[in-house]
Nucleic acid binder design. Structure first.
Length: 115
DNA sequence: ATTCTGACAGCAA
DNA sequence: TTTGCTGCCAGAA
């Protein structure tokens, strides 16, 4: 046992950041899926929180590809402009209407399955 | 140390 | 059916 769990706290954020960056272009996922991948199925709130910290990250994290299980752009207001998130997603070929992803199921990317 | 919040999700009424 | 409450875990005040 060397460095199995040197900093469980920061690891959670890093984990979310890593998974989020692993989301392929034109794909999306849900907070619950990532939370489930981390081992805590119902800790989806923490995922959102970690994504909030992603804003402070040095690297660009496609947090706009992470939405709630409804495909609704819940965190669009955190991108500065409420339209930025939808614009980015549409730019990647994702259909959005009323801040909701139309082909959510089609573009859904599950880390538990894909990763 | 305690309390509250937070980009969700699931279940109850 | 919709609406709302709770549960989850960790970080900040």
């Amino acid at each position: 046992m060397s460095q199995s769990k040197q900093k469980t706290s920061s690891d959670f954020f890093s984990m979310v950041h890593e998974v989020t960056r692993c989301i392929p272009y034109g794909r999306i996922t849900s907070y619950g899926a990532i939370a489930r991948y981390l081992g805590s199925g119902r800790s989806a709130r923490m995922v959102g929180w970690a994504l909030n910290a992603s804003h402070t990250s040095k690297d660009f994290i496609p947090a706009h590809r992470v939405v709630n299980h409804n495909g609704l752009l819940t965190g669009k207001y955190h991108f500065g402009n409420s339209t930025t998130m939808a614009q980015l997603l549409e730019n990647e070929g994702i259909l959005i209407e009323n801040d909701r992803i139309i082909n959510f199921d089609e573009k859904f990317w599950d880390p538990n399955t894909e990763l």
